[in-house]
Design a protein around this nucleic acid. Structure first.
Lengths: 209, 209
DNA sequence: TAGATTGTTAATCGATTAACAATC
DNA sequence: TAGATTGTTAATCGATTAACAATC
């Protein structure tokens, strides 16, 4: 159990472990060894044991890992039981779609409000989430703890809106705009969904044989 | 100029270079050195030169890189001028949003058709793209070349639909469902947008200090 | 020419894999 | 107990960084 210096590569594998273990759990599998888990996921058993050992000792020699317990441990590491609070900035087509489809609560997030500049939307409620005016950001954040802002706004206002939210204390940004956001506060974390980058990577792969 | 064994890490950086160079180009910047590009992108100059040198010699000693030319070279490597053809499988909220918002043509893709099981949608046209029945997949693919299928369908049918499309010759899958798709044909390429994984990575980062 | 900057080779660093003693 | 499988240390592999001769 080291707990220090967890590499980015390890962290990026955790959600996939969590997904696989959830799947095993719902299939009724009680225990699994690193080598069998590796076979299912196309990962070496070594890597799996190495990854888990960054966070603790979750297995038992001669037995392997208890699926339910390991799933819960990894969920805990990922913070799914932290009851995070999220707001949505920008309720266009994409914001709408995510609000409708994405299982926020399953991933430990509560969506407290959405914000948009469109006066036709302000005052309405979408999937139980009230849509507020962007002018209300300051007053809302004065009263509510917000851990993550989901950004589905035009590129042109993305960085300035991020700055505004950072000044109001928001530390996590789930960025769906296709630009790189920056902060000089190292406590502020960005996670990007760059659609275009993803499609271009696929484009590369199908273009070269 | 090696051209063999381009690592995944390098490929995943290419779209970001492309984005940055597009930005520089629209800002009217004519030339840039690896060290200045590195400063803007928070990457070492070494890495930039190493990355580019996988594909050719695009710079000039004492001068640096011509922005317009380098941008065009990287675009070419990514295949943006290959006129790829794409179909959308599943026109729910997310499929709709992507169809409305995503600049396919800017990234070298033409959207030829969308497919859905919902009879209310079949026969309509969304953003100039005809929505067809899933039953028409076979006949459509018999007549049209399709390079990529964008999947925004329920998890429960994702792998079987993928198999069906692979049998019809589709080699690229842009997967928005939150499961891992597999193929035993090594020519078939998957690129995933795993929303939940992304949010959980952010959840981890904001949970641990 | 002198200064700047490339492309590439060599050195370093970090991540993955292999091996194995510990132990359930 | 014997077999299985962990957690961890050591070995290997690959990716990033540094250095520098080549040259515009």
């Amino acid at each position: 159990m080291k707990k220090e210096n967890i590499s980015d590569a390890v962290v990026r594998r955790l959600p996939r472990y969590y997904r696989q273990l959830t799947d095993l759990y719902t299939r009724g599998v009680v225990r699994i060894s690193s080598s069998n888990l590796g076979k299912e996921m196309n990962i070496t058993a070594s890597q799996i044991r190495q990854d888990f050992s960054c966070f603790g000792e979750f297995g038992q020699q001669g037995y392997g890992y208890n699926v339910e317990e390991l799933r819960s441990e990894i969920g805990h590491i990922l913070g799914v039981d932290n009851n995070h609070h999220l707001i949505i900035i920008g309720v266009g087509n994409l914001g709408h779609a995510i609000l409708h489809n994405f299982p926020f609560s399953q991933n430990g997030f509560a969506v407290d409000a959405a914000f948009d500049v469109n006066p036709d939307l302000v005052g309405t409620t979408i999937c139980g989430v009230p849509v507020c005016s962007m002018d209300q950001l300051e007053s809302f954040l004065a009263e509510h703890r917000v851990d993550v802002a989901l950004l589905t706004i035009p590129q042109s206002v993305a960085q300035e809106t991020t700055n505004r939210l950072m000044n109001l204390g928001v530390k996590g940004f789930w960025n769906f705009t296709n630009i790189e956001l920056t902060s000089d506060n190292p406590d502020v974390k960005f996670e990007n969904i760059h659609f275009a980058d993803s499609l271009l990577i696929l484009s590369y792969r199908i273009s070269n044989r």
